[in-house]
Every structure is written in structure tokens, then in C-alpha cells.
Design a protein around this nucleic acid. Structure first.
Lengths: 314, 314
DNA sequence: TTATCGACGCACCAATCGACGCAACTCGTA
DNA sequence: TACGAGTTGCGTCGATTGGTGCGTCGATAA
């Protein structure tokens, strides 16, 4: 309690920085108490403290102080590592159970599954394109494509058949996403890098993310499947993205060392997203964010884009 | 104070070139910050950046750097002028850099290779889409994409680098083909089945074929990569295609038994195409045709389609 | 009295500087 | 066909710049 008005010394001690540094941050970056009369003592409110903690966390992770300050200044509260993140956006119902996911996913999913069983590429294409146009990429992925793909995958695992169905549908989904990405190709510098983990072959979710970003007008770079760590780091060094999304579908490809390599890169990205069911939360290095679904990944990426829009950096 | 002051590194990252290249462009072509004290850091204003973007855009289209620089240096005018002029001006076609060997494949290929080295997805997409629209899928594949991809592959084999470049370009090509396929999606029953051989992962040439077929108004079914023999035969039995194209990129995946299985299928296809450099002509079963290039594959497939237009078979 | 204020300065380090050289492409010439 | 000449992007090297955290000093608020 008693956190109504912290003095400069108390804040400095709590953050682990020198008092003079607080003053420097105030006059250099504008990160000071909300109201402060020059000459008088600084009184930090909890909101001011939260901003300073963001600043300290980012700089501790290696982000350039100027950039971290810009981020902290115009992000009211976003502590990515903790529990706050997922309260923002919550798309409608998702569940993991159900023997046949297609059953409870709506008539469109049922129709798509039937077309898939018929290997009817035209009908598949039409259904997907129509749904994307009507409901957007994110909703299409969550409520139509993921259930159907999961259903096919389950049945394939059970009967070891249907491989050709899976291939055909994957192909059609891929084409639909590609078409959607091309249709509204965003402009501007790409500050977001999308990549699969090493040896990871599943690209569909990443393609969904790419299409969703394009739909939202966010530029990105998509590297695709099976990207070795060296190539990923090389790409980061050469393009200096603000955020990197690394997808891992299965545990076998989710080597946390890949994330550590990103964290240790000379030009470390501001935000690193470990996406996909492969990653284990307890093995992720600090400073890595793990989005729970497509919508969260999109919103995080957009936040980074917005905060860095007109930034010049050191 | 001006709020605009991009550092050299920031500009380089935004343009997708190396920092040293910016310095080279400054001292060789005079494309630097308006005011710059030798010895001090360069600070690029938006006007300087605009000039550099013109430079980058022109070189990405295959214009010789010297010429592009001359153009960028005295062009107060922004974009939008070049659409007419770019095909007209053909300065002495020099090129260089630790770039991708493209051979004599034209300025567009050179520009594409340069954009690829920069990991500039936007420029890559634009070039490909523009060329497809102007020259068609087949020509784009033969004269633009295949040379560039082969160049990247060679370089990758030699230096074991550039993996990220290869991935990004593949991704963009794939997207472009997918978009082209979707744009003019043919109607009618699909009597042609496209598939990779078992364990074969390269799908790009097959995607080119698919896009070319779509462009020609021919329906097809595309199964994609790594199709096991059983799944392929199953698909043939269920859809009864008139022609099957089986792609093999390397000898390791070119098992002739796959073709024999197709020949022995209950509903044997009229035409079986063994496409790709993996197949050895002397090991192919009788009754299998081996097209030499994309154009031949397209014309064969179209011939089958035409021949079946009036003669329906069980 | 004591903690903090504003101003100034210093040490550290990443980013950048200029210079040089390499590799690879294209073109002209033999 | 082969080879030298010119062009060009970029890696490397030692030196320098400039951003950053923080200590110090006289003055002032609490």
C-alpha cells in the first residue's frame, strides 16, 4: 500500500537504477511524473511507475533506450510476459475437444469437409474465398479452416488414409491465403518477419497470419518452411525487423535455442513471438511472447507496427 | 528542430541494402544526405530518403545503377512517372555486386535477383505479378523465375548461404502463382491431376504448371508435395483423371515404381507425364511421356483436355 | 538536516566513418 | 570461346562519433 506518491529515490531503488538516471530519463525521453513543477520534487504515480517498468524491462532485454522509451511512452500498459496480454482480444468460441470437430463448426465447415472428401477443388476454393470475403481471414481460419483441417488430420491419423484429401485441401487453403495476401498487398517497409522453425514443415497457420496481416494493412516478410537458425539470424541481421514470429507445429521442431539465438542477435527484434502448439511455455527464454491464437498474434504485430511507424532509431 | 533524422543504419534497413552500400552510393553517385560534414554521421532527411527510394526502385527494375542514380539525383518528382519510361530507357546494362548469377536473362531477372538479395518482398511480388500479367505464366517461368531461382540455387550450393533468400523468393513465387490460379479459376470438371512424387518437396514447377493451366482455362487438381504412392493411386481411382503429372525434382524421389503403379491402376489415366529433372529417360515404363519444359507439359495437358471434350469414356 | 533538484561532465560501447579490397556480373575484343 | 576491362554491391579494418548511465556539485524544497 502507500503507493500513492513515490519519491524519486524510492522509485529508483525499486527499479534498480540510479536516481540521476531517473532524472535523465525524464528530461531526455519525457518519462517522468505526469505532473511536475520544475524545481519541486518529483512524485511518481502508479501509472508513471508502470511506464518506467516497461522502460526498464525493455532496456534490460537489450532494446535501444530511445526505442524503449518511445514504446513505453505511448503504450499505457502492456506487460507482455505476464498475464495481462490475453485479456484484450477474445475471439468467439474456440475449443479443443470433440471427436469430430467439423460437426460443431457450422454448415460451411460441413460443406467444406464434404467437398474435400470429393476432392472437389473448385468447390473448396469457392467456399474458402467466399468465407474470407465475408468474414475476414481470422474468422475464416478459426471457425472454418482449422476445424476442417483438424478433422481431416484426426481421421488421417486414425485410418492412415485421406492423405490425398489433406494435400488437396492444404493446397487450396494455401492458394486462398496467397490470393488474399496479394489482393490487398500492403505497402511500406516490412518490419515483421514470419518464419517457420528449423525443420518445421507446416506453414498453413503462418500463411493465415500473413493473410491476416495483409488484410489489416501490415507489411511483413514471409520466409516459409524449414528455416535453419543461421538463415533466420542472417535475415534478422539484414532486415532488422521490429518483430519476429517463429512457428513450430510439433514439439520436435520447437528448439528454444532458436529463440535464444534471436535474442542474442546483434539487432535484436523488439518483439519475439513463439507461435504454434510446439512450444512449451516453461522452456521459453525470457522476453519471448507466446500468443494463444491467431487474433492475438495479429494484434501484437499490429501494435509493434503502430508504435514504430515513424520512428527513427539510433 | 527537425523531427526527421534517419541514421544510416535505419535507412539501410528500410531500403534493404547494406550500410556500406549507402556510403558507396554517396561517394560514387552523390546520393547522400543533403548536408553532411565529412567525418560526422550521416543524417538522412525525407527528401534524401525519397531520392534513395527512387534509386532502389529503378535498380530493382533492372536499370543500371549509374543510370538510376543519374535519374534519382535530379528528379524532384516522386513516383508515377516511370511507368511509361522504364521500358523505353535501356541504358548500358551493367550490373554487379555479390549478386545472383542470372546470365543473360534480361533486366527484369536482374532486378528480381537484386530485390531477392535485399529480401524485398514487395519489390519481388510486384515484379512477378507485373511480368505474369504482361507475358503470361509460361514466359514468366522460363525467362524470369527459373533463371533467378537457378541462380540462387547455384549460389546457395556454392556458399551454403542465401537460404533465407531462397525461401523468401520461393514463397513469393508460390503466392504469385496461387494468386494467378485463383484469378482465372477455370470451371468444369478437373480431368488433370498434378502431384509431386513421394518424398518430393519441390512444388514450385508444379505450381507453375497449375497456374499456366488455369491461365489457359484448363481445370486441374493439385495435390502438392510428398504424395505417397498409395494416396496418389487412391486419388486416381476416386477422380478418374485423364492425365496425371508426376513431378520429381531429384533422382532420389524418382522411383519409376510410382509410374508403374499409375499404369496398373484400375482406371488408368490416358496420359501419364513424368515431369522434372529427377526422372531418367531410360528407366521410365512404356506409356509414360516425359515433357522437356513447361510449355510442352501445358500443351500436352491441353491436348488431352481437347481430345476428351467430345469423346466421353466410362 | 536530509533528500532532491538542475547542470555539468566523464567513461563505456554500439553504431558509424573513410579506405580498401574482393567477388561476380556484363561487355568488348581477340 | 576465352579473357581482360569496367562496374558494382558489400565485407573488413582501425579510428571516431554520439547515445547512455551515472557520479559530482552548489542550490533548494521538505
Amino acid at each position: 500500500m502507500a503507493d500513492e506518491a513515490l519519491s524519486a529515490g524510492a522509485v529508483a531503488r525499486r527499479l534498480g537504477v540510479a536516481v540521476t538516471t531517473l532524472r535523465t530519463w525524464h528530461q531526455r525521453y519525457g518519462l517522468g511524473p505526469s505532473e511536475h513543477v520544475p524545481g519541486h520534487h518529483r512524485r511518481y504515480t502508479p501509472a508513471d511507475l508502470a511506464r518506467l517498468e516497461t522502460m526498464r524491462r525493455l532496456t534490460a532485454e537489450g532494446v535501444s533506450p530511445a526505442e524503449a522509451a518511445r514504446w513505453a511512452r505511448q503504450a499505457p500498459d502492456r506487460t507482455s510476459v505476464d498475464t495481462v496480454t490475453r485479456s484484450r482480444i477474445r475471439p468467439p468460441g474456440r475449443d479443443g475437444g470433440g471427436a469430430i470437430p467439423v460437426g460443431r463448426a457450422g454448415p460451411a465447415a460441413r460443406g467444406l469437409a464434404r467437398a474435400a472428401m470429393r476432392l472437389d477443388a473448385a468447390a473448396i476454393n469457392e467456399t474458402i474465398a467466399h468465407t474470407i470475403a465475408a468474414s475476414g481471414v481470422v474468422a475464416t481460419w478459426e471457425t472454418l479452416l482449422r476445424p476442417v483441417l483438424a478433422g481431416i488430420g484426426d481421421r488421417h491419423a486414425a485410418t492412415s488414409g485421406l492423405i490425398e484429401v489433406e494435400h488437396l485441401v492444404s493446397r487450396c487453403v494455401s492458394e486462398a491465403f496467397a490470393a488474399a495476401s496479394q489482393a490487398n498487398a500492403p505497402s511500406g517497409p516490412a518490419r515483421i518477419l514470419l518464419s517457420c522453425a528449423d525443420e518445421e514443415q507446416h506453414t498453413l497457420p503462418l500463411e493465415a497470419l500473413a493473410a491476416a496481416l495483409a488484410e489489416a494493412g501490415v507489411s511483413y516478410r514471409m520466409l516459409g518452411a524449414r528455416v535453419p537458425v543461421a538463415a533466420l539470424v542472417e535475415a534478422v541481421n539484414r532486415t532488422g525487423p521490429a518483430a519476429v514470429v517463429l512457428w513450430s507445429h510439433t514439439r520436435a521442431t520447437a528448439d528454444p535455442a532458436q529463440l535464444s539465438a534471436l535474442l542474442a542477435a546483434p539487432r535484436r527484434p523488439l518483439l519475439i513471438l513463439a507461435a504454434g502448439p510446439g512450444w512449451r511455455a516453461d522452456t521459453l527464454p525470457a522476453g519471448v511472447v507466446r500468443p494463444v491464437d491467431l487474433a492475438e498474434a495479429v494484434s501484437l504485430a499490429m501494435a509493434v507496427r503502430d508504435s514504430l511507424d515513424q520512428s527513427r532509431e539510433a
